[in-house]
Structures are given as C-alpha cells and as structure tokens.
Design a protein around this nucleic acid. Structure first.
Lengths: 328, 328
DNA sequence: TTGTAAGCGTTATCAG
DNA sequence: CTGATAACGCTTACAA
C-alpha cells in the first residue's frame, strides 16, 4: 500500500519545490512560469495520480470545497430534483455536495448549520423549515460562507425561486376561463412563503374577475390535509372547483371527490401545483403548474459560485391536464 | 466578527492545555480525568459555543467525517429514499452525508471515487452503475475507507439489498394463484444484478408450477421501455398477464394496454416491482412488491459505522393492488 | 492526571 | 521565475 501520495512526492519527481507544484495546481503564477517547469509538474502529477488532500487544503485556506443543500426532506421529489440541480453545478466545479436533511425540524436544521460552520462550507443552498434559523445563518455568513435561499424567502438573503404568484394567477385565470365560478382554494401552511405567494396570485386573479372564492382553507402540504379539507368543503358548500396549493393536496382532493361519489372533471374541477412527475400518470391527468425544481437548484448553486448573488424568479408553466374542462 | 474560536481559546478559558480539551472532546481518558477538570472544559466549550474544525481534525486523523452515497440518480424516488436512510444514520453519529450522483455514467462515477479518496471519506454506500469501478474501489479500500454496496452486488464487497429473488417469486406465485397462465415478463437491463435476481425468482416460481413464460424481454428500467416492449408483446402473442421488473416499466405497460383498447385487470393483469409511492395513487392501484429503500440505506450506513460489515438481505412485501384479479 | 511538542498536507508570504 | 518557511487547528506520543 502506497499510503497517500503528497505534494512532496510530486515535487521530488518533478525536481521542483512543493510551492511550485502548488502554484501549478492553483494557477497562481502571476509573473508566469517556465512552460517546461509546468509541463514537468503536470507529468509528475499524472504519473503519480496525485490529488490534493481536501482537509489539508481546507485547513490552510480556511474554506472547504463543500456545497451544502439544506432542505426539509430529500425523499420529496421536488427537493431531490432541486438537489440534483445543485449537485450537477457543484460537480462541474470540483465541489462536493452535502445533503442536510432537516426533516422539517428547526432543531435538526440548527444542528446542521452548526456542522456547516465546522465544515467551513463554501456555500449553502438553504431551503428553510417554516422557522428559519436566523442566528445560525448570520453566524455562517459572518464566517464567510455564501448563502442563497431557494424556493422560499428569508429576509436579508438573496433568494432563487419560481414565480409562484404568477403561476398561480395563470392557473386561476385558466380555471375561470373554463367556466368555473364556485371555486374553493386549499392553501398550504400559512407560515410558508411559497404557500403565501400562491394564495396571493390566486386571489389576485379572482379579484380581477370579480369572483369571490367560496372558501379558502389552510393546511399542511399533505395528501391527508387535501382529503380532509375538501371532504368538509364538499359537505358545507356547493363548489364546482377545488384548487389546491400543491399536488399532494390535490391528490387528496381527487380521492375525496371520488369517495363522495362525484366524478372529476364532470361534477367538479380540480387543480394542483408543482407538476410532480406522477401527476402525469394519473387518470384523469392532473391540471397543475410546473415549477422548475432542477433549474432552481442549478441557478442557486451557480449564484453561490459566482461573485454576484441576486434574487431570481424563474417562470412557471401551466400544465393543462384533464381535471378541469373548458366546455361548461 | 470573532473569526473562529479554536481549541486554544477553550483551553485558555478553562485553564487547561489544548490536549486536555481534546481528550474531553474525544473521550480519550483511559486513566480517568478529574471530574472537576472535565466540567470546567465542558463549561468553556458551551460558553464559547466551540465546535472543532472538521478540516483540522481530518488532517490530523487522516480520516474525515464524510459518509458518501454514490448512486445513479438522486431524483429517482427509490434512491432518494435510500439516501435519506443513510443521512438519518449519519446525522445520528455526527457525520456529514455527501451525495455523489453518478448520473448512470461510469466516468462521472470514477471521478467521484477519486474525490472521495481526496476527502478521506469515512465510509461509502455504493450503488454502482452497470459497470462498477473496481480499481477505484480497491484504491479506496486500501486507503482505509469502509465500503458497503447497496441494492446491487459487487464481488469482493459486503452488500445490503432487498430479497429481490424472494419477492419476485412471491409475486409470480400470486399471479399464478390469480389464475393467469399466459404470462410475459419484462425484465430490466441484463447487466444489473437487481434485475437479474428478479428475473431469476420469477422464473423459479413459474418453473415450479410447470408454467412456461410466453416471453421474457429485456430493456431499461423506464416507462418508455415498458410501453414499447408491451406494445410489441400485445401484438405478437396472446398474453393474459404482463409482469414488469419495476414500477416505471409497469406504468408504461398500463398505458400501452390502455392504448390497445384493453382494460386492466379485466383483459390483462399487470404487476410491477418497487412500490414507488405514486403507485398507490394509480387507479387501478398497481399490484407490486415493496422494496424497503429507507431501510437499505439505514442498514448500509449502520454497517459502515460498525466494526463488522456483512451481507444483509432485507425482506420484501407483496402489495396486492388492483391490477391483478383473483377471480378468473 | 495533565502538559509539551511534533506533525498531518497545503498554501501564502517573503526572499532570492 | 522559484524555493524556504511558517502557519492553518487539531490529536497523540511522550514527559512530567
């Protein structure tokens, strides 16, 4: 076993000093470097298959190669796609991608932010739980980590997200165009910015059309919440359309409508938000709004690695499925 | 800005030497330590909110806190759930979880294994592409990294996976019990061990019942492959059941059968494998086999962190959906 | 039971 | 244009 080959081995083989190897490695030769020397170093690097040790480099530079993505649940398809976007950019620049699954728990999230401090993470794509850890973020920022919020909004940090309000407005307009008028809206959790934006866009479109929503109910972004809320609504009010703030809730709605002996879209129209992959395979296919998760991750990671970081709002796209019909 | 608080600061505040702090941190006091000293150190650590710098620790120990999970695609729900299992165990032991998305590319995977060498990763949960990087693995193992293969099999390394053969056999027996006899099997890629095991179990059950499969076709684990293969089969042979090696393929099958103007399960039975979350929401609900992805990740990560690492085979579970009917 | 000091592999500063 | 050298923060013999 050869143990580790170090920068000294490379230097020895190339007949130069470690500093020269380091300079080749980091492209730090302002006043130029003899091409011959550089070539010899490169040859030695290749010959020994040398790769600098990350811990030594990080210790010296006081900054690691880690790009972290802090998110509520990696097994949620939306977030895993976003993470994939981050990873693809990170890989392209030689960074490692660390997954910090907060599990919707502010405590676990806080713990992770502390670990990231100890890791001297280069950058962090941050998708907060409903209560962001302001202090942890501030400490990280002060220590020199770059931070970009994704999908949600946290005051004081640049944020990359989808045009939730616009997408929601477009969806509402589409529902209205279909002829639905007694519309109920199942909003997500009141304390999640994404949910608030979607609600806002939805309201704006109805207002503009002079239509009053039959009801607006808040609840978690889950199938169960969608089921329970819509069951209640179906009993208490005559609605002709149920619009949910995300696809999981919409799925619950579909099942509730079915269980009430009604059919979609003949008796009642249904729509969601997110365009989760499986919605394409539902029959009838769900009418929803596509949110570019992969792109959000890519753009957020890109901002971390570039010098400027500014708010970005990516466009959404209406998916005209089969759960809303236009001929009413 | 206070920069970083180091072990020296803690030592100074507690009135001890850095080594003593280090010993408290690592529980390395064989011949005991005055409780008073230990308490003072703990107090200082808390007061300063001190966390050891990972890079310094790794450099000295020649081993990092990184648990890596190398997988083909983090946006695939099966793998993201597995990754979540790894993360939950890693977090519990203060390790960081690094995601290495090979994107089904042996080249990208090889690149990642080199990075893991430079990271001095503590352990690696390895889900190979169809062609594992034997040399990279060997180098990693030689360098002291612990490696556990998950979901698949790579000779020479312990492997944690589901009982694919057993699950597939159980499914085949169920299909036979339902009364289906003209059964076609859509196997996955011939070079993926998971697919081979499922095929093997399926064959064994049919053999035992003295039933000849109408056809066995190989193809990638995709919706498209499922669609194309079953369209062809539907034309060329009269089948009464189409069993796919995973749920994505099964979904393609469902659409193909529909497009052929036939209905499931009245005209033809369908089954899949994996129990992807969305299969529950299909109507009719897909008959399939549950594979414990989360648990595979947990067990694999557990093995990395324990002293022993041995093959593990986790049980699967038949999900009796609505795409196979028993009254024929 | 605790302190001293060397060294892990790199890089940045400063000479030459 | 290149080489010494010190330092990054921590752990671990070895001493005391």
């Amino acid at each position: 076993m050869d143990g580790n080959v170090t920068i000294k081995d490379v230097a020895a083989l190339a007949g130069v000093s470690p500093s020269t190897v380091s300079r080749v490695l980091n492209g730090n030769y302002r006043q130029h470097m003899t091409p011959a020397t550089r070539d010899r170093v490169h040859a030695a690097i290749d010959a020994l298959r040398y790769t600098p040790l990350r811990s030594a480099r990080s210790l010296r530079r006081q900054r690691s190669h880690v790009l972290a993505v802090v998110l509520p649940d990696i097994s949620n398809p939306f977030f895993s796609l976003l993470a994939r976007g981050v990873e693809s950019i990170a890989f392209g620049t030689g960074c490692s991608t660390m997954i910090c699954n907060s599990d919707h728990s502010p405590t676990k999230e806080r713990h992770y932010l502390e670990i990231l401090l100890a890791e001297q993470a280069l950058g962090i794509v941050y998708i907060p739980t409903s209560t962001p850890d302001d202090e942890g973020l501030k400490r990280l920022a002060r220590s020199g980590a770059r931070i970009v919020v994704a999908d949600r909004v946290v005051p004081g940090f640049p944020s990359v997200r989808a045009d939730n309000a616009g997408g929601s407005r477009a969806l509402a307009e589409y529902v209205l165009r279909c002829g639905y008028r007694r519309i109920a809206y199942l909003a997500g959790p009141a304390d999640v910015s994404t949910a608030r934006e979607r609600l806002e866009g939805f309201r704006a479109a109805l207002d503009a059309a002079g239509v009053q929503p039959v009801a607006i109910e808040h609840g978690p972004f889950t199938c169960e919440a969608g089921y329970d809320l819509s069951t209640k609504l179906a009993r208490s009010a005559r609605v002709d359309a149920l619009v949910a703030a995300n696809d999981m809730m919409a799925l619950g709605v579909l099942r509730a409508v079915e269980d009430a002996g009604l059919s979609v879209p003949d008796h009642v129209g249904v729509a969601g938000f997110d365009h989760a992959p499986w919605t394409t395979y539902l029959r009838p296919q769900l009418t929803t709004v596509e949110v570019p998760a992969l792109q959000i991750g890519e753009v957020a990671a890109g901002q971390l690695l570039s010098e400027v970081a500014e708010d970005a709002c990516l466009p959404t796209r209406l998916i005209e499925g089969e759960t809303c019909v236009s001929c009413r």
